[in-house]
Design a protein around this nucleic acid. Structure first.
Length: 574
RNA sequence: GGUGGGAUAGCUCAGCCGGUUAGAGCGCAGGACUCAUAAUCCUGAGGUCCCCGGUUCGAUUCCGGGUCCCACUACCA
């Protein structure tokens, strides 16, 4: 049994996430967590809301709330929606809580002790009417290069030139539209990443072999360009106060740590929250000097997050010179697009997590998003392929199989696992299928290749349909009840197995199947050792004969063309 | 602009180190079966593997150039 720590990139607090966010980190992390529990490993699955920063402050202001109120409310919403998708976090924390505050301030202290932080003065745009400094993208004005009037402070959307907000002509605040802006000097803490350049590269070299190409190429890109010292504080009120040895740092009374400095620390902070709430020991997961040296740590995230996890956060950890557990494997995802374009909140393109649950049960979405996971490149969501995938894979292949077998058992064998018959060529064929496919199924999951894992799952289900067609118990019944009993008994065992292997991706449906067959909780794992004991033939005769079984409620309903038309009209899609 | 990724059947995608009749699922066509949610099973038709060069006995696979799509580009996260 291994110990596996799994974290998903933290969803930002600013509103319910869309399906792309779900597909690119939280969902695959959950599937991986569930798979590893299925294999009998000890798993700790951690996530949290990332709550600090300018967007949270602005969204709160727009909602007429304080940032704290706003975040309280949004956290609960995201937590509820996550639960609606059966995301099996051991803890879903908040970066605004005490443990993260303490840890973040601790890291800043030790980094400064180690000579990796210094104060510097920089020039920033200040909006007098908004009474705040403006991050680059909240300053707009006329592009000095092309004359476009709505260029943002960091880049002109019209000509693509990278800009410094100081260079904009007629700058104004995009928060209020006020033109009353000026350049002011401001003091900030800078993390001296350049000093750790070589150590980070060595650290990446030692690990990149275990990373997918997408991950390592992004990490090396940043290293090759050279790490630059970056400011880790901001002129904001919502965030973690800047302290030195526990006291407010002089001159930093109205500043907080930059959200990207504290957010990754919340992986640890959230674990502390979990430990405090459950009387657990968090250090055995995070401190290699206190038992975490045998932990395998796996991170999931979208590609936009990779640089922060392969370079920035490692700077914090390595620079601390403390024995923190660091990431072993890092799985990054491309984007799920909406009909080839982006999901967009403002133009109402795409489906958000809460809306998705209003339309259909979570397992429908989980299956599609895993089976079409944007692993090797960006992937387009379309209602047409969604419908085809659900109707065929879930309804016809799995749902119908479960239904046909359990109904027949109910009609002809009194709703029990029947006795009688001797396995023959058809059963041997099925055993061979399992022998080939189950190791593949496991290997794909272990390699974190989720599309392939889903495809293999489906292939195993499909083999069940093929088996029952060959065995044809309904024909055999006319001449030999024993022969029919063999087919149905084997079929029922397959139903149980199909439910077990379905658990990582479609846990709710899997539960319905396993409940209908009265499989005890303790017998729902797929421990390879157990398979080894009886070999693959035993999988087809695992249920006790005479075990009463029920016909589960209809597992899936087909998606109709009319629904697709309605959803396209409502959510966009072309 | 720079950097990285992608371009393979109608659609979504697999195809480590060059040699395969180039594969899967969906969709489509034909057939079988009838236990089942008109579900399932079998068979089949579909591909100048983006373009142009080069290396090689041989290139979808390697190299160079080009075209198109996407992402990142560091104080939004």
């Amino acid at each position: 049994m291994a110990r596996i720590l799994i974290t998903s990139a933290l969803p930002y607090i600013n509103g319910v996430k869309h399906l792309g966010n779900l597909a690119g980190s939280m969902l695959p992390a959950d599937v991986y967590a569930r798979f590893n529990r299925l294999m009998g490993h000890e798993v700790l699955f951690i996530c949290a809301t990332d709550e600090h920063g300018t967007p949270a402050e602005l969204a709160a202001a727009e909602a007429g709330q304080t940032p704290a109120q706003y975040c309280d409310e949004q956290h609960e919403i995201q937590k509820r929606v996550g639960a609606g998708f059966s995301l099996s976090f051991d803890w879903f924390g908040r970066s605004s809580r005490e443990p993260n505050r303490k840890l973040t301030q601790h890291f800043a202290d030790v980094l400064e002790d180690n000579g990796l932080i210094e104060e510097r003065t920089s020039r920033q745009v200040y909006s007098v009417d908004d009474k705040r400094f403006l991050p680059d993208r909240y300053v707009e004005g006329t592009c000095p290069n092309c004359g476009y009037e709505k260029a943002r402070g960091d880049q002109c959307d019209n000509c693509g030139t990278l800009l410094d907000p100081v260079d904009l002509i007629n700058p104004y605040s995009s928060v209020s539209g006020s033109k009353n802006v000026e350049i002011r000097d401001t003091r900030h803490l800078f993390l001296l990443q350049s000093k750790l350049q070589d150590r980070i590269r060595k650290w990446v070299d030692a690990r990149s072999a275990n990373w997918p190409q997408l991950t390592s190429s992004i990490a090396y890109k940043w290293l090759d360009e050279g790490l630059i010292d970056r400011s880790i504080t901001r002129d904001l009120s919502w965030g973690i106060p800047v302290t030195r040895h526990g006291k407010t740092r002089a001159g930093f009374e109205h500043k907080v740590f930059y959200v990207w400095f504290d957010a990754p620390v919340e992986y640890i902070g959230s674990t502390v929250e979990w430990a405090e709430a459950n009387q657990q020991n968090w250090e055995r997961w995070w401190r290699t000097d206190k038992g975490a040296d045998d932990v395998a740590y796996v991170q999931f995230m979208g590609k936009d997050n990779v640089a922060f996890h392969t370079v920035s956060f490692p700077v914090t950890i390595l620079g601390s010179e403390e024995p923190w557990k660091q990431v072993d494997r890092l799985k990054a995802f491309n984007w799920l697009n909406w009909y080839g374009g982006k999901f967009s909140t403002s133009s109402k393109r795409g489906v958000f997590m809460d809306q998705a649950l209003e339309l259909l049960p979570s397992d429908y979405w989980r299956w599609y998003l895993v089976a079409n996971s944007p692993e090797s490149s960006d992937t387009a969501f379309t209602w047409e392929s969604f419908k085809a995938s659900i109707n065929s894979d879930l309804n016809d292949v799995l749902g119908n199989f479960v239904n046909r077998i359990t109904k027949y058992a109910s009609a002809k064998f009194e709703g029990q696992v029947p006795d009688g018959g001797t396995p023959g060529e058809h059963e041997a064929w099925m055993v061979q299928q399992l022998q080939e496919r189950l190791p593949q199924f496991i290997a794909h999951y272990e390699a974190m290749e989720f599309r392939k894992a889903a495809a293999e799952t489906r292939a195993i289900w499909a083999a069940g349909n093929e088996y029952i067609t060959k065995a044809a118990p309904w024909t055999a019944y006319k001449t030999s009840v024993d022969q029919a009993a063999l087919g149905i008994r084997t079929g029922l065992n397959l139903v149980a197995l199909f439910g077990i292997i379905a658990q990582p991706i479609i846990p709710e449906t899997a539960k319905k199947i396993l409940d209908a067959l009265n499989i005890p909780e303790g017998n729902r794992s797929l421990d390879p050792k157990k398979i080894g004991e009886g070999g693959y033939p035993a999988l087809l005769d695992a249920l006790p004969r005479g075990l009463p079984i029920a016909v589960p409620p209809q597992l899936f309903t087909k998606i109709e063309d009319a629904q697709v038309a309605e959803w396209k009209a409502r959510f966009g899609g072309e």
